[in-house]
Design a protein around this nucleic acid. Sequence first.
RNA 1: GCACCCGUAGCUCAGUGGAUAGAGCACCGGACUUCUAAUCCGAUGGUCGCUGGUUCGAUCCCAGCCGGGUGCGCCA
Length: 570
Amino acid sequence: MSGTPRQILGDRLRDALKAAGFDPVRGDVSASADMRFGDYQSNAAMVLAKEKKSNPRQIAADILSRLDVRGISAAPEVAGAGFLNFRLESEFLDSALGALAADPRLGVATAKIPQKILLDFSSPNVAKPMHVGHIRSTILGDCLARIARFLGHEVITDNHIGDWGTQFGKVIYGWKHFLDREALARDAIAELVRLYREVNRMEETDEVVRRVAREELVKLQAGDAENLAIWKETVELSWREFEKLYGLLDIRFDERLGESAYNDALAPLCEELQRRGIARESEGALCIFYPGIPALAEKPAIIRKSDGGFLYATTDLATIEYRLKHWRPDAIWYVVGAPQALHFQQIFAACRMMGIEANLVHIAFGSILGEDRKIMKTRSGENVGLAEVLHEAVDRARKMIAARQEGLTPEALESIAETIGIGAVKYAELSQNRHTDYVFSWEKLLALDGNTAPYLQNAYVRIRSIFRRGEVGADPGAAIRISVPAERLLAIKLLQYAETVPVVLEDFRPNILANFLYELANTYHSFYEACPVLKAEPEVRASRLLLSELTARILSHGLSLLGIRCPEKM
RNA sequence: GCACCCGUAGCUCAGUGGAUAGAGCACCGGACUUCUAAUCCGAUGGUCGCUGGUUCGAUCCCAGCCGGGUGCGCCA
Protein backbone atom coordinates (compact mmCIF):
# COMPACT_ATOMS: atom_id res chain seq x y z
CA MET A 1 0.00 0.00 0.00
CA SER A 2 1.70 3.16 -1.13
CA GLY A 3 0.64 6.68 -1.92
CA THR A 4 -0.83 9.48 0.10
CA PRO A 5 -3.96 9.00 2.20
CA ARG A 6 -5.85 10.96 -0.41
CA GLN A 7 -4.69 8.67 -3.21
CA ILE A 8 -5.30 5.49 -1.30
CA LEU A 9 -8.76 6.49 -0.11
CA GLY A 10 -9.55 7.79 -3.58
CA ASP A 11 -8.56 4.47 -5.14
CA ARG A 12 -10.71 2.53 -2.70
CA LEU A 13 -13.61 4.86 -3.27
CA ARG A 14 -13.31 4.50 -7.05
CA ASP A 15 -13.31 0.72 -6.67
CA ALA A 16 -16.53 0.99 -4.67
CA LEU A 17 -18.10 3.32 -7.21
CA LYS A 18 -17.28 0.93 -10.02
CA ALA A 19 -18.72 -1.99 -8.06
CA ALA A 20 -21.89 -0.02 -7.39
CA GLY A 21 -22.25 0.90 -11.04
CA PHE A 22 -21.30 4.55 -10.75
CA ASP A 23 -18.83 6.64 -12.71
CA PRO A 24 -15.51 6.25 -10.87
CA VAL A 25 -14.37 9.65 -12.15
CA ARG A 26 -16.42 11.15 -9.31
CA GLY A 27 -14.39 9.35 -6.71
CA ASP A 28 -12.31 12.19 -5.39
CA VAL A 29 -11.29 12.53 -1.77
CA SER A 30 -9.98 15.66 -0.13
CA ALA A 31 -8.55 16.58 3.23
CA SER A 32 -11.25 17.83 5.55
CA ALA A 33 -11.06 21.46 6.47
CA ASP A 34 -12.63 20.79 9.82
CA MET A 35 -11.51 18.01 12.16
CA ARG A 36 -15.07 17.33 13.25
CA PHE A 37 -15.71 15.92 9.80
CA GLY A 38 -12.87 13.45 9.96
CA ASP A 39 -9.48 13.63 8.32
CA TYR A 40 -10.61 13.16 4.74
CA GLN A 41 -13.96 13.54 3.06
CA SER A 42 -15.67 12.85 -0.23
CA ASN A 43 -18.69 14.51 -1.75
CA ALA A 44 -18.99 11.88 -4.49
CA ALA A 45 -22.50 10.89 -3.37
CA MET A 46 -23.80 14.42 -3.77
CA VAL A 47 -22.19 14.86 -7.18
CA LEU A 48 -23.64 11.54 -8.34
CA ALA A 49 -27.04 12.36 -6.88
CA LYS A 50 -27.11 15.50 -8.95
CA GLU A 51 -26.30 13.57 -12.11
CA LYS A 52 -28.78 10.80 -11.39
CA LYS A 53 -31.36 13.05 -9.78
CA SER A 54 -31.64 10.81 -6.78
CA ASN A 55 -31.13 10.87 -3.05
CA PRO A 56 -27.52 11.59 -2.07
CA ARG A 57 -27.73 9.86 1.29
CA GLN A 58 -29.09 6.73 -0.41
CA ILE A 59 -26.22 6.80 -2.89
CA ALA A 60 -23.78 7.32 -0.04
CA ALA A 61 -25.20 4.21 1.62
CA ASP A 62 -24.80 2.26 -1.66
CA ILE A 63 -21.19 3.33 -1.92
CA LEU A 64 -20.56 2.52 1.72
CA SER A 65 -21.83 -1.02 1.32
CA ARG A 66 -19.17 -1.69 -1.34
CA LEU A 67 -16.37 0.32 0.22
CA ASP A 68 -13.42 -1.47 1.74
CA VAL A 69 -11.08 0.81 3.64
CA ARG A 70 -9.95 -1.71 6.22
CA GLY A 71 -6.51 -0.95 7.54
CA ILE A 72 -6.72 2.70 6.49
CA SER A 73 -9.76 4.31 7.93
CA ALA A 74 -12.52 3.51 10.34
CA ALA A 75 -15.79 2.75 8.57
CA PRO A 76 -16.74 6.12 7.15
CA GLU A 77 -19.87 7.83 8.31
CA VAL A 78 -22.45 9.50 6.12
CA ALA A 79 -22.91 13.04 7.33
CA GLY A 80 -24.77 16.17 6.39
CA ALA A 81 -26.14 16.23 2.88
CA GLY A 82 -24.25 13.07 1.95
CA PHE A 83 -20.61 13.54 2.83
CA LEU A 84 -18.47 10.48 3.44
CA ASN A 85 -16.09 11.23 6.29
CA PHE A 86 -12.94 9.20 6.78
CA ARG A 87 -10.93 8.96 9.94
CA LEU A 88 -7.47 7.47 9.56
CA GLU A 89 -6.60 4.55 11.81
CA SER A 90 -3.59 4.51 14.08
CA GLU A 91 -2.17 1.40 12.40
CA PHE A 92 -2.31 3.15 9.06
CA LEU A 93 -0.62 6.26 10.42
CA ASP A 94 2.11 4.13 11.91
CA SER A 95 2.89 2.29 8.69
CA ALA A 96 2.50 5.36 6.50
CA LEU A 97 4.90 7.39 8.63
CA GLY A 98 7.32 4.49 8.64
CA ALA A 99 7.26 4.56 4.85
CA LEU A 100 7.71 8.33 4.92
CA ALA A 101 10.75 8.03 7.16
CA ALA A 102 12.31 5.56 4.75
CA ASP A 103 11.64 7.68 1.69
CA PRO A 104 14.24 10.24 0.64
CA ARG A 105 11.53 11.97 -1.40
CA LEU A 106 9.28 12.30 1.64
CA GLY A 107 6.43 10.69 -0.22
CA VAL A 108 6.41 13.06 -3.15
CA ALA A 109 5.97 11.21 -6.45
CA THR A 110 7.62 12.37 -9.64
CA ALA A 111 5.53 13.61 -12.56
CA LYS A 112 3.95 10.89 -14.67
CA ILE A 113 4.99 12.69 -17.84
CA PRO A 114 8.30 14.49 -17.33
CA GLN A 115 8.60 17.58 -19.46
CA LYS A 116 11.47 19.62 -20.76
CA ILE A 117 10.78 23.15 -19.64
CA LEU A 118 12.53 26.35 -20.64
CA LEU A 119 12.02 28.81 -17.81
CA ASP A 120 12.46 32.51 -18.51
CA PHE A 121 12.65 34.77 -15.47
CA SER A 122 14.36 37.69 -13.73
CA SER A 123 15.58 39.48 -16.89
CA PRO A 124 17.07 42.68 -15.45
CA ASN A 125 18.23 45.51 -17.69
CA VAL A 126 21.92 46.11 -18.14
CA ALA A 127 23.25 49.42 -16.80
CA LYS A 128 20.28 49.73 -14.47
CA PRO A 129 20.05 48.57 -10.88
CA MET A 130 17.73 45.75 -9.99
CA HIS A 131 14.93 47.13 -7.86
CA VAL A 132 12.12 45.62 -5.86
CA GLY A 133 10.10 45.29 -9.04
CA HIS A 134 12.46 42.46 -10.05
CA ILE A 135 11.88 40.57 -6.85
CA ARG A 136 8.81 38.65 -7.87
CA SER A 137 10.00 37.34 -11.20
CA THR A 138 13.35 36.36 -9.75
CA ILE A 139 12.13 34.63 -6.61
CA LEU A 140 9.04 33.08 -8.17
CA GLY A 141 10.94 31.83 -11.21
CA ASP A 142 13.70 30.26 -9.15
CA CYS A 143 11.15 28.58 -6.91
CA LEU A 144 9.24 27.13 -9.86
CA ALA A 145 12.51 25.82 -11.30
CA ARG A 146 13.33 24.09 -8.03
CA ILE A 147 9.92 22.50 -7.72
CA ALA A 148 9.72 21.41 -11.35
CA ARG A 149 13.13 19.77 -11.08
CA PHE A 150 12.19 17.99 -7.89
CA LEU A 151 9.10 16.65 -9.63
CA GLY A 152 11.29 15.13 -12.31
CA HIS A 153 11.06 17.69 -15.08
CA GLU A 154 14.08 18.84 -17.02
CA VAL A 155 14.39 22.57 -16.51
CA ILE A 156 16.58 25.02 -18.36
CA THR A 157 16.64 28.45 -16.74
CA ASP A 158 17.46 31.33 -19.05
CA ASN A 159 18.00 34.89 -17.91
CA HIS A 160 16.86 36.95 -20.88
CA ILE A 161 18.65 40.11 -19.79
CA GLY A 162 17.92 43.46 -21.40
CA ASP A 163 21.35 43.96 -22.92
CA TRP A 164 20.39 45.80 -26.07
CA GLY A 165 18.46 48.97 -26.67
CA THR A 166 18.50 52.67 -27.33
CA GLN A 167 19.92 53.50 -23.92
CA PHE A 168 23.35 52.38 -25.08
CA GLY A 169 23.79 55.44 -27.30
CA LYS A 170 23.69 57.56 -24.18
CA VAL A 171 25.76 55.26 -22.06
CA ILE A 172 28.48 55.08 -24.71
CA TYR A 173 28.50 58.84 -25.15
CA GLY A 174 28.84 59.29 -21.41
CA TRP A 175 31.50 56.58 -21.23
CA LYS A 176 33.63 58.34 -23.82
CA HIS A 177 33.28 61.83 -22.36
CA PHE A 178 33.12 61.66 -18.59
CA LEU A 179 33.56 58.15 -17.29
CA ASP A 180 34.88 57.95 -13.74
CA ARG A 181 36.96 54.78 -13.69
CA GLU A 182 37.23 54.78 -9.94
CA ALA A 183 33.49 55.03 -9.46
CA LEU A 184 33.04 52.31 -12.05
CA ALA A 185 35.27 49.98 -10.09
CA ARG A 186 33.44 50.80 -6.88
CA ASP A 187 29.87 50.38 -8.13
CA ALA A 188 29.62 49.80 -11.85
CA ILE A 189 25.89 50.12 -12.18
CA ALA A 190 25.71 53.32 -10.18
CA GLU A 191 28.32 54.84 -12.47
CA LEU A 192 26.53 53.64 -15.60
CA VAL A 193 23.29 55.11 -14.32
CA ARG A 194 25.09 58.37 -13.62
CA LEU A 195 26.41 58.46 -17.21
CA TYR A 196 22.97 57.74 -18.60
CA ARG A 197 21.28 60.40 -16.51
CA GLU A 198 23.98 62.95 -17.23
CA VAL A 199 23.66 62.49 -20.98
CA ASN A 200 19.89 62.51 -20.72
CA ARG A 201 20.06 65.85 -18.95
CA MET A 202 22.50 67.30 -21.49
CA GLU A 203 20.36 66.17 -24.39
CA GLU A 204 17.50 68.29 -23.16
CA THR A 205 19.36 71.45 -23.99
CA ASP A 206 22.15 70.34 -26.28
CA GLU A 207 21.27 69.41 -29.83
CA VAL A 208 24.81 68.22 -30.52
CA VAL A 209 24.88 65.77 -27.62
CA ARG A 210 21.59 64.32 -28.75
CA ARG A 211 22.87 63.86 -32.30
CA VAL A 212 26.22 62.36 -31.28
CA ALA A 213 24.62 59.99 -28.78
CA ARG A 214 22.32 58.75 -31.51
CA GLU A 215 25.31 58.30 -33.81
CA GLU A 216 27.04 56.26 -31.12
CA LEU A 217 24.01 54.00 -31.05
CA VAL A 218 24.02 53.62 -34.82
CA LYS A 219 27.74 52.83 -34.77
CA LEU A 220 27.14 50.20 -32.09
CA GLN A 221 24.39 48.62 -34.12
CA ALA A 222 26.64 48.67 -37.19
CA GLY A 223 29.30 46.75 -35.33
CA ASP A 224 31.81 49.52 -34.61
CA ALA A 225 34.66 47.86 -32.73
CA GLU A 226 35.19 50.51 -30.07
CA ASN A 227 31.50 50.89 -29.22
CA LEU A 228 31.03 47.17 -29.26
CA ALA A 229 33.86 46.83 -26.75
CA ILE A 230 32.32 49.48 -24.47
CA TRP A 231 28.93 47.83 -24.75
CA LYS A 232 30.38 44.46 -23.94
CA GLU A 233 32.14 45.83 -20.91
CA THR A 234 28.97 47.47 -19.58
CA VAL A 235 27.14 44.17 -19.97
CA GLU A 236 29.82 42.24 -18.12
CA LEU A 237 30.15 44.81 -15.35
CA SER A 238 26.40 44.87 -14.89
CA TRP A 239 26.25 41.12 -14.82
CA ARG A 240 28.86 41.01 -12.10
CA GLU A 241 26.68 43.31 -9.99
CA PHE A 242 23.64 41.16 -10.69
CA GLU A 243 25.57 38.07 -9.70
CA LYS A 244 26.28 39.53 -6.27
CA LEU A 245 22.55 39.70 -5.67
CA TYR A 246 21.86 36.33 -7.26
CA GLY A 247 24.57 34.92 -5.01
CA LEU A 248 22.93 36.42 -1.95
CA LEU A 249 19.61 35.03 -3.15
CA ASP A 250 21.17 31.63 -3.89
CA ILE A 251 19.95 31.73 -7.46
CA ARG A 252 21.78 30.49 -10.54
CA PHE A 253 20.93 30.36 -14.22
CA ASP A 254 21.77 27.75 -16.80
CA GLU A 255 21.78 30.27 -19.62
CA ARG A 256 22.16 33.99 -19.97
CA LEU A 257 21.08 34.72 -23.50
CA GLY A 258 20.11 38.37 -23.55
CA GLU A 259 18.23 40.26 -26.19
CA SER A 260 21.43 40.96 -28.10
CA ALA A 261 21.86 37.27 -28.85
CA TYR A 262 19.03 37.47 -31.35
CA ASN A 263 20.00 40.61 -33.28
CA ASP A 264 20.97 38.75 -36.42
CA ALA A 265 17.78 36.72 -36.44
CA LEU A 266 15.37 39.65 -36.47
CA ALA A 267 15.51 40.73 -40.13
CA PRO A 268 15.29 37.18 -41.54
CA LEU A 269 12.44 36.40 -39.17
CA CYS A 270 10.46 39.42 -40.36
CA GLU A 271 11.04 38.48 -43.97
CA GLU A 272 9.95 34.93 -43.36
CA LEU A 273 6.79 35.99 -41.55
CA GLN A 274 5.97 38.36 -44.36
CA ARG A 275 6.61 35.69 -46.98
CA ARG A 276 4.36 33.24 -45.16
CA GLY A 277 1.59 35.81 -44.98
CA ILE A 278 1.61 35.90 -41.20
CA ALA A 279 2.79 39.51 -41.17
CA ARG A 280 1.99 42.33 -43.56
CA GLU A 281 2.84 45.97 -43.93
CA SER A 282 0.52 48.60 -42.53
CA GLU A 283 1.24 52.29 -42.36
CA GLY A 284 4.86 51.54 -43.15
CA ALA A 285 5.32 49.08 -40.29
CA LEU A 286 5.35 45.30 -40.46
CA CYS A 287 2.49 43.96 -38.37
CA ILE A 288 0.90 40.69 -37.38
CA PHE A 289 -2.88 40.88 -37.41
CA TYR A 290 -5.21 38.49 -35.67
CA PRO A 291 -8.50 38.48 -37.53
CA GLY A 292 -9.42 35.09 -36.11
CA ILE A 293 -9.11 36.15 -32.49
CA PRO A 294 -11.83 38.61 -31.43
CA ALA A 295 -9.92 39.92 -28.44
CA LEU A 296 -6.94 40.74 -30.64
CA ALA A 297 -8.84 41.88 -33.70
CA GLU A 298 -8.03 45.51 -33.03
CA LYS A 299 -4.62 44.86 -31.55
CA PRO A 300 -1.93 44.01 -34.07
CA ALA A 301 1.64 43.37 -32.98
CA ILE A 302 4.26 45.49 -34.67
CA ILE A 303 7.42 43.58 -35.42
CA ARG A 304 9.24 46.10 -37.61
CA LYS A 305 8.91 49.84 -37.29
CA SER A 306 8.44 52.04 -40.34
CA ASP A 307 12.07 53.14 -39.90
CA GLY A 308 13.18 49.53 -40.16
CA GLY A 309 13.89 49.08 -36.46
CA PHE A 310 12.80 46.00 -34.55
CA LEU A 311 10.90 45.73 -31.32
CA TYR A 312 10.42 43.74 -28.17
CA ALA A 313 7.91 41.48 -29.94
CA THR A 314 10.37 40.72 -32.71
CA THR A 315 13.07 39.71 -30.27
CA ASP A 316 10.65 37.55 -28.31
CA LEU A 317 9.56 35.68 -31.43
CA ALA A 318 13.15 35.15 -32.51
CA THR A 319 13.94 33.96 -29.00
CA ILE A 320 11.17 31.38 -29.11
CA GLU A 321 12.36 30.12 -32.48
CA TYR A 322 15.90 29.76 -31.17
CA ARG A 323 14.81 28.02 -28.00
CA LEU A 324 12.68 25.53 -29.89
CA LYS A 325 15.44 24.77 -32.34
CA HIS A 326 18.16 24.59 -29.74
CA TRP A 327 16.48 22.76 -26.85
CA ARG A 328 13.23 21.36 -28.22
CA PRO A 329 11.36 22.09 -24.97
CA ASP A 330 7.83 20.86 -24.37
CA ALA A 331 7.03 24.11 -22.66
CA ILE A 332 8.33 27.63 -22.23
CA TRP A 333 7.35 29.43 -19.04
CA TYR A 334 7.64 33.20 -18.76
CA VAL A 335 7.61 34.62 -15.26
CA VAL A 336 6.74 38.18 -16.16
CA GLY A 337 4.40 40.78 -14.65
CA ALA A 338 0.70 40.93 -15.45
CA PRO A 339 0.93 44.26 -17.33
CA GLN A 340 2.51 42.32 -20.18
CA ALA A 341 -0.40 39.95 -20.59
CA LEU A 342 -1.46 41.43 -23.93
CA HIS A 343 2.06 41.23 -25.28
CA PHE A 344 2.24 37.53 -24.52
CA GLN A 345 -1.22 36.94 -25.92
CA GLN A 346 0.01 38.46 -29.17
CA ILE A 347 3.28 36.57 -29.17
CA PHE A 348 1.67 33.23 -28.40
CA ALA A 349 -1.03 33.77 -31.01
CA ALA A 350 1.67 34.53 -33.55
CA CYS A 351 3.45 31.33 -32.56
CA ARG A 352 0.32 29.32 -33.21
CA MET A 353 0.06 30.92 -36.63
CA MET A 354 3.67 29.89 -37.21
CA GLY A 355 2.76 26.31 -36.33
CA ILE A 356 4.61 26.21 -33.01
CA GLU A 357 3.12 23.59 -30.73
CA ALA A 358 5.11 23.96 -27.52
CA ASN A 359 3.12 24.86 -24.46
CA LEU A 360 3.75 28.58 -23.97
CA VAL A 361 2.76 29.97 -20.62
CA HIS A 362 2.80 33.47 -19.25
CA ILE A 363 3.07 33.08 -15.50
CA ALA A 364 1.82 36.54 -14.63
CA PHE A 365 2.05 38.24 -11.28
CA GLY A 366 0.66 41.40 -9.77
CA SER A 367 2.57 44.62 -9.55
CA ILE A 368 4.38 46.13 -6.64
CA LEU A 369 2.80 49.49 -6.06
CA GLY A 370 4.22 52.63 -4.51
CA GLU A 371 2.63 54.46 -1.61
CA ASP A 372 0.35 56.18 -4.14
CA ARG A 373 -0.89 52.77 -5.29
CA LYS A 374 0.72 53.32 -8.69
CA ILE A 375 3.08 50.77 -10.17
CA MET A 376 6.67 51.28 -9.19
CA LYS A 377 8.41 52.00 -12.44
CA THR A 378 11.99 52.51 -13.33
CA ARG A 379 11.50 56.00 -14.65
CA SER A 380 9.83 57.19 -11.45
CA GLY A 381 13.26 57.33 -9.90
CA GLU A 382 11.66 56.50 -6.56
CA ASN A 383 12.52 52.85 -6.74
CA VAL A 384 13.81 50.97 -3.79
CA GLY A 385 16.83 48.98 -4.85
CA LEU A 386 16.78 45.24 -4.46
CA ALA A 387 20.25 45.38 -2.94
CA GLU A 388 19.06 47.79 -0.24
CA VAL A 389 16.14 45.59 0.65
CA LEU A 390 18.29 42.49 0.92
CA HIS A 391 20.97 44.19 2.98
CA GLU A 392 18.41 45.76 5.28
CA ALA A 393 16.81 42.37 5.77
CA VAL A 394 20.13 40.82 6.73
CA ASP A 395 20.92 43.74 9.06
CA ARG A 396 17.64 43.36 10.90
CA ALA A 397 18.07 39.63 11.24
CA ARG A 398 21.62 40.10 12.50
CA LYS A 399 20.48 42.46 15.27
CA MET A 400 17.73 40.09 16.28
CA ILE A 401 20.06 37.11 16.50
CA ALA A 402 22.87 38.97 18.24
CA ALA A 403 20.41 39.92 20.96
CA ARG A 404 19.40 36.29 21.51
CA GLN A 405 22.44 34.18 20.83
CA GLU A 406 25.75 34.79 22.49
CA GLY A 407 29.08 33.29 21.66
CA LEU A 408 28.51 33.01 17.94
CA THR A 409 31.52 33.59 15.76
CA PRO A 410 31.14 36.56 13.40
CA GLU A 411 31.03 34.13 10.50
CA ALA A 412 28.29 32.05 12.08
CA LEU A 413 26.32 35.19 12.94
CA GLU A 414 26.59 36.45 9.38
CA SER A 415 25.58 33.13 7.91
CA ILE A 416 22.49 32.87 10.11
CA ALA A 417 21.58 36.51 9.47
CA GLU A 418 21.64 35.88 5.73
CA THR A 419 19.60 32.72 6.04
CA ILE A 420 16.97 34.48 8.14
CA GLY A 421 16.92 37.86 6.40
CA ILE A 422 16.92 36.62 2.83
CA GLY A 423 14.50 33.87 3.75
CA ALA A 424 12.08 36.44 5.15
CA VAL A 425 12.16 38.45 1.92
CA LYS A 426 11.63 35.39 -0.25
CA TYR A 427 8.85 34.04 1.92
CA ALA A 428 7.02 37.37 1.91
CA GLU A 429 6.80 37.05 -1.87
CA LEU A 430 6.15 33.36 -2.16
CA SER A 431 3.53 33.08 0.56
CA GLN A 432 1.27 35.41 -1.31
CA ASN A 433 -0.97 34.65 -4.26
CA ARG A 434 0.99 35.77 -7.30
CA HIS A 435 -1.91 37.63 -8.86
CA THR A 436 -2.26 40.07 -6.01
CA ASP A 437 -0.92 43.59 -6.41
CA TYR A 438 0.52 44.97 -3.25
CA VAL A 439 1.87 48.20 -1.89
CA PHE A 440 5.56 47.98 -1.22
CA SER A 441 6.42 48.23 2.44
CA TRP A 442 9.66 47.56 4.24
CA GLU A 443 7.69 46.21 7.12
CA LYS A 444 6.02 43.60 4.97
CA LEU A 445 9.18 42.35 3.31
CA LEU A 446 11.27 42.42 6.45
CA ALA A 447 8.85 41.13 9.06
CA LEU A 448 10.29 38.43 11.30
CA ASP A 449 7.11 37.71 13.29
CA GLY A 450 3.91 35.91 12.41
CA ASN A 451 3.51 34.03 9.16
CA THR A 452 7.09 34.49 8.00
CA ALA A 453 10.08 32.38 7.08
CA PRO A 454 11.65 32.81 10.55
CA TYR A 455 8.54 31.22 12.02
CA LEU A 456 9.11 28.12 9.91
CA GLN A 457 12.84 28.21 10.51
CA ASN A 458 12.22 28.46 14.23
CA ALA A 459 10.21 25.26 14.22
CA TYR A 460 13.14 23.57 12.49
CA VAL A 461 15.64 25.03 14.96
CA ARG A 462 13.60 23.86 17.93
CA ILE A 463 13.69 20.34 16.58
CA ARG A 464 17.43 20.42 15.98
CA SER A 465 17.81 21.69 19.50
CA ILE A 466 15.96 18.68 20.86
CA PHE A 467 18.34 16.32 19.12
CA ARG A 468 21.38 18.32 20.25
CA ARG A 469 20.18 18.49 23.81
CA GLY A 470 19.18 14.84 23.94
CA GLU A 471 22.29 13.74 22.06
CA VAL A 472 20.08 11.35 20.15
CA GLY A 473 18.92 10.70 16.65
CA ALA A 474 15.54 9.48 15.51
CA ASP A 475 15.04 5.80 14.83
CA PRO A 476 13.40 5.66 11.41
CA GLY A 477 11.94 2.28 12.33
CA ALA A 478 10.32 3.52 15.53
CA ALA A 479 6.61 2.85 15.87
CA ILE A 480 4.32 5.86 15.88
CA ARG A 481 2.29 5.94 19.09
CA ILE A 482 -0.51 8.48 19.04
CA SER A 483 -1.70 9.38 22.51
CA VAL A 484 -2.78 13.02 22.27
CA PRO A 485 -4.51 15.02 19.49
CA ALA A 486 -1.44 17.17 18.82
CA GLU A 487 0.50 14.08 17.75
CA ARG A 488 -2.27 12.89 15.49
CA LEU A 489 -2.63 16.27 13.78
CA LEU A 490 1.09 16.41 13.21
CA ALA A 491 1.25 12.88 11.84
CA ILE A 492 -1.49 13.57 9.30
CA LYS A 493 0.04 16.88 8.31
CA LEU A 494 3.33 15.17 7.57
CA LEU A 495 1.62 12.77 5.19
CA GLN A 496 0.08 15.68 3.32
CA TYR A 497 3.38 17.11 2.13
CA ALA A 498 3.22 14.66 -0.75
CA GLU A 499 -0.29 15.85 -1.58
CA THR A 500 0.76 19.49 -1.63
CA VAL A 501 3.97 19.82 -3.63
CA PRO A 502 2.63 18.64 -7.02
CA VAL A 503 -0.35 20.99 -6.75
CA VAL A 504 1.97 23.99 -6.89
CA LEU A 505 2.67 23.44 -10.57
CA GLU A 506 -0.98 23.03 -11.52
CA ASP A 507 -1.37 26.76 -11.51
CA PHE A 508 2.15 27.92 -10.65
CA ARG A 509 1.35 28.86 -7.09
CA PRO A 510 4.17 28.44 -4.60
CA ASN A 511 1.97 30.05 -1.96
CA ILE A 512 0.17 26.72 -1.69
CA LEU A 513 3.43 25.15 -0.51
CA ALA A 514 4.23 28.15 1.69
CA ASN A 515 0.82 27.92 3.32
CA PHE A 516 1.28 24.20 3.90
CA LEU A 517 4.66 24.72 5.54
CA TYR A 518 3.20 27.44 7.73
CA GLU A 519 0.47 25.07 8.87
CA LEU A 520 3.02 22.34 9.47
CA ALA A 521 5.20 24.65 11.57
CA ASN A 522 2.13 25.83 13.43
CA THR A 523 1.05 22.24 14.07
CA TYR A 524 4.53 21.40 15.26
CA HIS A 525 4.72 24.38 17.59
CA SER A 526 1.47 23.23 19.19
CA PHE A 527 2.80 19.70 19.45
CA TYR A 528 5.99 21.08 20.98
CA GLU A 529 4.04 22.87 23.71
CA ALA A 530 1.80 19.90 24.44
CA CYS A 531 4.24 17.01 24.10
CA PRO A 532 7.54 16.73 25.88
CA VAL A 533 9.86 14.67 23.72
CA LEU A 534 13.01 13.88 25.64
CA LYS A 535 11.23 13.35 28.95
CA ALA A 536 8.58 11.03 27.57
CA GLU A 537 8.42 7.29 28.25
CA PRO A 538 10.75 5.31 25.92
CA GLU A 539 8.15 4.22 23.34
CA VAL A 540 6.44 7.58 23.25
CA ARG A 541 9.79 9.29 23.15
CA ALA A 542 10.91 7.26 20.14
CA SER A 543 7.62 8.04 18.42
CA ARG A 544 7.90 11.76 19.15
CA LEU A 545 11.53 11.84 18.07
CA LEU A 546 10.49 10.34 14.75
CA LEU A 547 7.62 12.79 14.32
CA SER A 548 10.05 15.60 15.09
CA GLU A 549 12.66 14.32 12.71
CA LEU A 550 10.14 14.02 9.89
CA THR A 551 8.88 17.51 10.58
CA ALA A 552 12.41 18.88 10.40
CA ARG A 553 13.07 17.06 7.15
CA ILE A 554 9.88 18.30 5.53
CA LEU A 555 10.32 21.86 6.75
CA SER A 556 13.86 21.95 5.51
CA HIS A 557 12.98 20.28 2.23
CA GLY A 558 9.89 22.39 1.62
CA LEU A 559 11.77 25.56 2.38
CA SER A 560 14.54 24.49 0.03
CA LEU A 561 11.93 24.17 -2.72
CA LEU A 562 11.04 27.78 -1.97
CA GLY A 563 14.73 28.64 -2.20
CA ILE A 564 14.98 29.24 1.55
CA ARG A 565 17.55 27.67 3.87
CA CYS A 566 17.30 26.57 7.46
CA PRO A 567 19.78 27.56 10.16
CA GLU A 568 20.70 25.09 12.91
CA LYS A 569 20.44 27.83 15.54
CA MET A 570 18.76 31.18 15.56
C1' G B 1 -14.02 52.20 -26.56
C1' C B 2 -11.77 47.14 -25.99
C1' A B 3 -8.98 43.62 -22.93
C1' C B 4 -6.72 41.59 -18.40
C1' C B 5 -6.24 41.65 -12.87
C1' C B 6 -8.34 42.96 -8.19
C1' G B 7 -12.58 44.10 -4.39
C1' U B 8 -13.01 38.90 1.95
C1' A B 9 -12.20 41.24 9.75
C1' G B 10 -9.55 48.00 11.71
C1' C B 11 -4.77 46.93 8.46
C1' U B 12 -2.12 43.15 5.26
C1' C B 13 -3.72 38.87 3.03
C1' A B 14 -5.28 33.02 2.50
C1' G B 15 -9.32 30.53 0.72
C1' U B 16 -10.88 29.01 -7.73
C1' G B 17 -18.49 24.24 -6.16
C1' G B 18 -19.05 21.72 -0.08
C1' A B 19 -20.59 21.60 6.11
C1' U B 20 -20.55 27.14 11.24
C1' A B 21 -15.40 31.74 5.60
C1' G B 22 -9.67 31.46 7.95
C1' A B 23 -4.54 33.41 9.19
C1' G B 24 -0.90 37.32 10.37
C1' C B 25 -0.52 42.28 12.34
C1' A B 26 -2.96 45.50 15.80
C1' C B 27 -5.99 45.31 20.38
C1' C B 28 -7.49 42.47 25.17
C1' G B 29 -6.62 38.19 28.76
C1' G B 30 -3.48 34.02 30.13
C1' A B 31 1.30 30.57 29.82
C1' C B 32 8.62 30.92 30.35
C1' U B 33 12.76 27.14 37.62
C1' U B 34 10.63 23.35 31.35
C1' C B 35 13.46 20.11 24.59
C1' U B 36 14.98 27.95 21.98
C1' A B 37 8.68 32.58 24.39
C1' A B 38 11.06 34.56 16.83
C1' U B 39 6.55 30.22 20.72
C1' C B 40 1.79 28.52 22.69
C1' C B 41 -3.53 28.89 24.64
C1' G B 42 -7.87 32.01 24.65
C1' A B 43 -11.17 36.55 23.57
C1' U B 44 -12.75 40.41 20.21
C1' G B 45 -13.56 41.36 15.24
C1' G B 46 -17.44 39.62 8.62
C1' U B 47 -24.29 42.38 4.53
C1' C B 48 -17.09 37.82 1.27
C1' G B 49 -18.30 45.40 -3.53
C1' C B 50 -23.86 45.39 -5.32
C1' U B 51 -27.98 42.91 -8.02
C1' G B 52 -29.76 38.87 -10.48
C1' G B 53 -28.96 33.71 -12.45
C1' U B 54 -27.24 28.33 -12.43
C1' U B 55 -27.03 24.56 -8.28
C1' C B 56 -29.25 20.16 -3.14
C1' G B 57 -25.21 23.69 -1.95
C1' A B 58 -21.85 29.93 -4.45
C1' U B 59 -16.56 34.08 -1.58
C1' C B 60 -15.66 30.62 -5.82
C1' C B 61 -19.25 29.50 -11.93
C1' C B 62 -22.47 32.92 -15.44
C1' A B 63 -24.69 37.96 -16.63
C1' G B 64 -25.10 43.02 -15.46
C1' C B 65 -23.59 47.09 -12.49
C1' C B 66 -20.25 49.98 -8.95
C1' G B 67 -15.28 50.97 -7.33
C1' G B 68 -9.67 50.44 -7.87
C1' G B 69 -5.34 48.99 -10.84
C1' U B 70 -3.05 47.87 -15.54
C1' G B 71 -2.52 47.39 -20.77
C1' C B 72 -3.92 48.58 -25.98
C1' G B 73 0.27 50.65 -34.08
C1' C B 74 5.93 52.17 -34.34
C1' C B 75 9.52 51.82 -25.75
C1' A B 76 11.20 47.33 -23.36
